[in-house]
């Protein structure tokens, strides 16, 4: 008996689909998953990569010599923006020793949102360094837990030592509207950066 197939439903789905990606970074407990979940149409999923995938010889495995396949998980969500356009939000794996994943994350990404917890600002240094090193546009979202902003935004900017031009916004990761605004700010900034770097190649710049 050969080739008993099933009929694939002829879908009205558009022929070409496009996807985009935004990275959400921040220290442990900064609200990355909450942020992603507040706009995602799916409960944030988790995908894993093994250290052996990429990090052999790069990541320092000396601390866990007997563990050859440490897995690293990252949460992500999905937002359908149009019939043929899906935006994915990827939360970064928290621990710095899993940075090998970040290459996958930033490749082709529109930009990044660094969620800063003002109680642990130092956690934001590493992602900021990384994005600056890679030239990925990023903005900083100061997560206001319980709606209370602990510090003046200018102080936060100074503490983070980031350039004046980099947007620093306050956001409440639990609020869909706040998350949405933060993402809009990020994309606008990424477009400005794009134009600044490549010259006004596009006739009608937005921003």
């Amino acid at each position: 008996m050969d080739s008993v197939g099933f009929k694939a439903p002829r879908q009205a789905a558009p022929k070409t689909m496009t996807s985009a990606k935004i990275v959400v970074a921040g220290g442990f407990g900064a609200g990355k998953t909450t942020f992603v979940g507040s706009v995602s149409e799916i409960v944030p999923l988790t995908t894993e990569a093994m250290m052996t995938d990429a990090s052999t010889g790069i990541d320092d495995t000396a601390a866990t010599p007997n563990k050859s396949t440490t897995t690293v998980a990252m949460d992500f969500g999905r937002v359908s923006l149009d019939e043929d356009l899906i935006l994915y939000l990827f939360g970064t794996p928290g621990q710095e020793r899993f940075w090998f994943m970040w290459d996958d994350l930033v490749r082709g990404a529109i930009g990044a949102v660094v969620l800063a917890d003002t109680r642990r600002l130092a956690d934001s240094f590493a992602p900021i360094d990384f994005f600056e090193d890679r030239g990925l546009p990023y903005i900083v979202g100061v997560n206001t837990f319980d709606g209370v902003l602990q510090h003046d935004l200018n102080d936060v900017r100074e503490a983070l030592s980031i350039d004046e031009s980099i947007p620093l916004v306050r956001c409440d990761a639990r609020q869909r509207e706040s998350t949405k605004q933060t993402l809009i700010t990020m994309v606008e900034y990424a477009m400005q950066q794009w134009l600044a770097v490549r010259g006004a190649a596009t006739p009608n710049p937005v921003g």
């Binding site: 985009a20 529109i110 937005v206």
Partner: peptide, 9 residues
């Protein structure tokens, strides 16, 4: 793509 994402958001 960024333009489309922006208007979508």
């Amino acid at each position: 793509l960024m333009e489309r994402v922006l208007s979508g958001l």
